[in-house]
Design a protein around this nucleic acid. Structure first.
Lengths: 215, 215
DNA sequence: GATGATGGTGATAGCTTCTAACTAGCGTGG
DNA sequence: CCACGCTAGTTAGAAGCTATCACCATCATC
């Protein structure tokens, strides 16, 4: 809405490019993303896209940034509606299942040479802060040897007042949910018969120290 | 050693191709694997490789198979030397850290169209069986609602006599260790300061119900 | 209205996978 | 022993990709 018509057109084309890029990624993965194909879909030919994105990597970087932003927003939105930690976990799973390749763009196989831009780590710690905010005093767990080590490496919490044991707990929240979720999204449970959503819920219950929600 | 000289030469070239492929994957990831580059390294030009591998996908499939086989062997070898569950976990981590891209070839971002060959699921359940074999009666955890669901979907255990609660426990072993391990290998802990190996050990301790190994 | 920034074009280089046609040579059956 | 056949290798080429370059049109502003 703001800016000169030139600028508005420019951002609109950029958005449309990213739109098509997401479509391609959803059906064939990020490695199959083709600038040529996107250009053809937009009715313009090949090199025109380089006016809007300097390279394929630059476009993908932009998409990674947007994916991070989208995940952080989904978590914050869940928190805003009064969701507890279980609610945050399910919001995260919903966001991931909605577009698995978008999840893998963040948490999938890294390309050895590639370095994510700095602001993604900012967003990443924003997500972490959302989890920490939702943690009550109950989320601590008994002190472990790792907690002592973690006490000396609290930098990543960016001054969040949560006790170190809670930081450890939040790390477990992240790693465990990512473990079950990424295996589900990658299809590793496909031929095994059980319902991945139930395994996710069970893992979450164990994490929240609710040993048996059924009885 | 067996077979005609022709066959021996053929398998030797195939092995050499895979060797170079692993080198390329280790430094640039599987997506950057180039048959042309491999052929050039072997001193032959381009299309000659298609005598040995029908396509790029076929080569990658072969590599995935070998990676699965290698992981299963590493786990079985650890078990053969009397390793307990913690030993299995550390064997798995060693194997992964040794060549992260090899780990990601198995557990990383899946290409939407691609379907892994059937024998990989066989090897996968062999790995699962190794874990189940190392489980004592202690590894069960309290019965959960998920265990009831899992009771009706035991097919993937392929007749292993372990009780259902132990199957659930083995799933947690898999998902939790994969969670912390894959995030480490992907570099998501890079800027956070703490030692990923210690987080892995801590997560393993919690999994094995050893709340505080330090005190 | 002239001028300069901007958007788009086709041509081109260099890379990729993969197919097709063809040749050199090894190994075995007659 | 020799001829045939299979195999491994070659070059050429199609189709695709990223990315750069040179050029042209068009729009916005002075």
């Amino acid at each position: 809405m703001t800016g000169t018509p030139r600028e508005r057109y420019r951002t609109q084309v950029r958005e449309e490019v990213k739109e098509r890029a997401w479509e391609q990624i959803a059906v064939a993965g990020a490695s199959a993303l083709s600038l040529n194909a996107i250009a053809k879909q937009l009715g313009m030919s090949g090199p025109a896209l380089y006016r809007y994105f300097g390279s394929r990597d630059e476009l993908i970087t932009e998409l990674i940034r947007d994916a991070y932003r989208s995940l952080a927003d989904a978590m914050r939105a869940a928190q805003a509606t009064g969701a507890d930690l279980a609610g945050l976990a399910h919001a995260m799973r919903r966001w991931a299942v909605e577009d698995p390749q978008r999840y893998f763009l963040i948490y999938g196989t890294p390309v050895p040479g590639y370095h994510a831009p700095d602001d993604t780590t900012v967003i990443s710690s924003e997500i972490m802060a959302t989890v920490l905010d939702a943690c009550g005093p109950a989320q601590a767990g008994p002190a472990t040897a790792f907690d002592g080590h973690l006490e000396r490496h609290r930098e990543w919490a960016r001054g969040h007042p949560a006790p170190t044991a809670t930081l450890h707990w939040a790390l477990s929240f992240w790693t465990r949910l990512h473990g079950v979720l990424s295996l589900e999204l990658a299809g590793h449970f496909a031929g095994m018969g059980f319902d991945p959503a139930l395994l996710f819920a069970a893992e979450l219950d164990r994490l929240l120290d609710r040993p048996d929600p059924a009885t």
